[in-house]
Design a protein around this nucleic acid. Structure first.
Length: 784
DNA sequence: AAATAGCAACTTTTT
DNA sequence: GTTGCTATTT
């Protein structure tokens, strides 16, 4: 007990010791919110609340994991339900599936599945998309679902002026989802919310079952989530929510900031606790955040304060362009690591949109700086993985039409788009799943005999696979790969010279299956595996026990903290984003987004913008964000871009260290010499156009290298993180390394001197010694 | 039907 | 700079 309350402030203790009745914790950034929540759970258990009656809802798996780990420390072995809203709903829905017209093996469509399904619904509803795009319709429907609007309600609402496109598609889409025994992300919430609303006896049962509900990041809940939480807190209003209205950044997906602003109205007997002391940031950083957020009109005023040391002034920096921004920041990080003894993990680079990660990635890589990018393209999005997943989905849920269409002709087996269209329309006409339609292939008129045979062969294959549904995942996946000759298909499809990672990914997927089998020796089911893969988000990829610079969006950064933070691209049209800045609420949300970014920093913060930025190919002039003028400028350090470093100026200042030691436990991919050595490409010259060589010659060289690199490696995005860096920094070559040269064969590096493009290696080959500029020559590193 | 080439449109943020 | 779609070819 002492342990649980030890070291807590008065306000924190107040919150922790509150057990029964509604509780609102208004927690500013860095105010120890997680600490309060976890200690409160432990306290409740200690006071005799059965752990099984507690449910803690978060927005990300990561948040849930962290909470779980910390509760485990305080109250070992007590199993409290913790997880995301979506997972919570997915599990409830599993149990009560039949009540909403599904069966327990229903599938969760991810956003690309949903997109496919939406297109089909639009087609089936016979709507021309000349005036609206499918995306727009999808957004409208998604918003409706988040506001608990059913197809009937939407139709009724638009009756007067004639139904809108969305109103006509919505019922069709929903019906097709039911036929496919599937739900989209929004449905997870919608179904459960409606379930609670329409079945009072069930609502009451669950209310009692989950007597104590905790919700994290309450400012980001939408109406559906609100309704769920509310429905579970009527008989037992032991609802505690934590949040910060100033950090509400999900309005675009239906989050309603009023849920938290009006919480005290909803629960008049609420106890409100304000956590305003900040333990995270320096006063400098906090003042910047505070002054910025004061410009929002719709908010609860809050006094942020801290007893931390003053620290350094916040830096406001203007670069020439995005490359300079990336290089400058990477240099600064490299320098801080080399000179000040910082670790890579102490830094974060944050931005408004994922597209901005590219230049950062480049700069980090050239300096051999370990980093982790949290963004879109990841494992489960890759073609080969999606293919195999689709097989699994179809085996688990034979009605999964999106999966069927993906799988029916991969590997190609003579079933073309036309045949698929026949099957689809047959299915639509009879209101049956497409797999069912394939079994009735003989009844479909107009289909060539040859096509029908191919379809029958597929059905046979499917039936063979489906028998193995209850095998271990490892066996099942291996069986699919074998039976479909999937690897042959990959090898055939892979364009010559493209990366061979596809097959490796398949192996990794099998490994994922093996892991799953191991962690779930008893309760492991295909269903559970699929649910887990469907509900992992990109942000969950963040690892805090790894020593790397973190690179991610402002949204993904919520809840995290770093000693040093760089927010890049603080420009008009980018932050605030041009698509949000026109409405007051949108504009204020953008401001909150910057607020979130600023308050991630513990010791030092830099906000930067550029004079010009290249987006989508062309470079355009950029102007700084209007938010700059809302900051305490007079106490900040303003820096205009210095003239770019000149590499050929012999004693120029910036010199990166060749590498820094990673901790021993570091066994992550790439960034060490081992991975670098496995790559067969020379370095990108780490310099820009300002160079001593004749300009034309240089351009040609650069162009040649670019071409070559593309041909050899195929891709050069975040995805190739998995297969290794696409270029070797000049610093990767060390004395003693073994290298191969096209002309001279194998040789050993005798010495390395100079830096940047001037960095030169002396190499002893069989035919004598030769000197090479590392940035320019074609050298293959054999061992490092 | 399959493979390829070329075009078009788009990118805000995510469970 | 990418991804998905259409037209073209075998």
């Amino acid at each position: 007990m002492d342990v649980i309350l030890q070291g807590l402030t008065e306000a924190q203790t107040d919150a922790v010791t509150h057990i029964d009745g509604p509780l609102l914790i208004l927690a500013g950034p860095g105010s120890g919110k997680t600490r309060v929540v976890t200690h409160r759970i432990a306290y409740m258990i200690n006071q005799g609340v059965p752990p099984s009656q507690i449910a803690a809802l978060t927005f990300t798996n990561k948040a849930a994991d962290e909470m779980r780990a910390r509760v485990e420390q305080l109250a070992p072995g007590k199993s409290v339900w913790m997880g995301t809203f979506h997972r919570f709903c997915a599990q409830l829905l599993r149990r009560y599936a039949t009540m909403v017209g599904l069966t327990e093996n229903y599938s969760i469509y991810d956003s690309s599945d949903a997109k496919q399904a939406m297109k089909r619904a639009i087609e089936a509803a016979d709507i021309s998309t000349s005036h609206t795009s499918p995306e727009q319709i999808a957004t409208t429907i998604s918003n409706a679902k988040n506001r608990l609007v059913t197809p009937e309600m939407m139709l009724a609402a638009t009756k007067r002026s004639g139904p809108t496109m969305a109103a006509r598609v919505y019922p069709v889409y929903q019906q097709q989802l039911l036929t496919a025994n599937a739900v989209d992300f929004d449905d997870l919430l919608l179904h459960v919310a409606l379930l609670l609303k329409e079945h009072p006896e069930l609502r009451q049962e669950l209310d009692t079952r989950f007597r104590y509900i905790l919700v994290d990041e309450y400012q980001d809940t939408n109406l559906a989530q609100y309704a769920i939480v509310r429905g579970l807190s009527i008989n037992h209003p032991n609802l505690s929510v934590t949040g910060d209205p100033d950090q509400s950044i999900y309005g675009w997906r239906g989050a309603d900031i009023n849920n938290i602003l009006d919480f005290e109205k909803d629960y008049p007997s609420v106890k409100t606790v304000r956590l305003e002391q900040n333990y995270r940031s320096t006063p400098n950083i906090l003042r910047a955040a505070d002054q910025l957020i004061r410009h929002n009109r719709r908010r609860k005023n809050k006094e942020l304060y801290t007893h931390n040391d003053e620290g350094d002034a916040v830096t406001l920096r203007i670069y020439e362009n995005g490359y300079e921004e990336a290089d400058g920041i990477a240099d600064e990080i490299a320098n801080a690591i080399a000179v000040e003894g910082f670790r890579p993990r102490d830094f974060a680079i944050l931005y408004r949109m994922n597209a901005l990660s590219r230049s950062i990635e480049h700069s980090m890589r050239r300096r051999n700086l370990p980093y982790q990018i949290i963004n879109g393209l990841e494992f489960y999005q890759r073609k080969e993985i999606k293919d195999l997943l689709a097989y699994l989905h179809l085996i688990n849920n034979p009605k999964h039409d999106v999966a069927l269409q993906r799988v029916i002709n991969t590997p190609t087996r003579g079933i073309g788009t036309k045949t698929i269209a026949y099957l689809r329309s047959h299915a639509d006409r009879h209101g049956i799943p497409m797999l069912e339609a394939t079994r009735q292939v003989d009844q479909i008129e107009g289909l060539a005999k040859r096509s029908a045979t191919a379809v029958k062969r597929f059905v046979e294959l499917y039936d063979r696979l489906a028998i193995k549904a209850t095998a271990t995942l490892e066996d099942l996946i291996r069986y699919i790969v074998e039976e479909t000759r999937y690897e042959d298909h990959l090898l055939k499809t892979v364009v010559d010279g493209q990366d061979s990672s596809a097959v490796a990914n398949v192996d990794e997927f099998i490994t994922a299956g093996v892991e799953f089998d191991r962690y779930h020796p008893d309760d492991g089911s295909l269903e559970l595996f699929l649910e887990q893969t469907a509900l992992v988000a990109d942000t969950d990829a963040f690892e805090d026990n790894t020593d790397r610079v973190t690179v991610m969006t402002l949204h993904a950064a919520k809840g995290l903290e770093f000693p040093r933070v760089f927010v890049i691209g603080v420009e008009d049209g980018l932050l605030p984003h041009s698509r949000s800045k026109d409405t007051d609420s949108g504009f204020e949300e953008e401001r909150r987004l910057l607020f979130v970014g600023i308050t991630r920093a513990k010791e030092r913060l830099q906000l930067s913008c550029c004079k010009s930025r290249t987006m989508r190919g062309e470079s355009r002039p950029a102007i700084s964000s209007p938010f700059f003028n809302e900051l305490p400028l007079d106490e900040m350090r303003r820096v205009e871009s210095e003239l770019e470093r000149n590499w050929f100026d012999e004693d120029s200042q910036d010199d990166y260290p060749e590498s820094w030691d990673l901790p021993e436990e570091e066994d992550d991919e790439d960034f060490d010499s081992e991975a670098a050595a496995s790559v067969k490409e020379t370095a990108d010259p780490p310099f820009d156009e300002s160079c001593q060589l004749p300009e034309e010659e240089l351009k040609e060289l650069v162009a040649k290298k670019k071409k070559k690199k593309k041909a050899v490696l195929g891709l050069k995005t975040a995805a190739d993180l998995m297969s290794g860096p696409s270029s070797i920094p000049v610093t990767a070559y060390r004395e003693g390394n073994l290298v191969r040269h096209g002309e001279h064969g194998e040789g050993r590096i005798v010495s390395v001197t100079g830096r940047g493009p001037k960095r030169t290696a002396t190499i002893r080959f069989d035919d004598g010694e030769h000197r090479f500029r590392l940035a320019f020559c074609e050298l293959e590193l054999i061992d490092g």
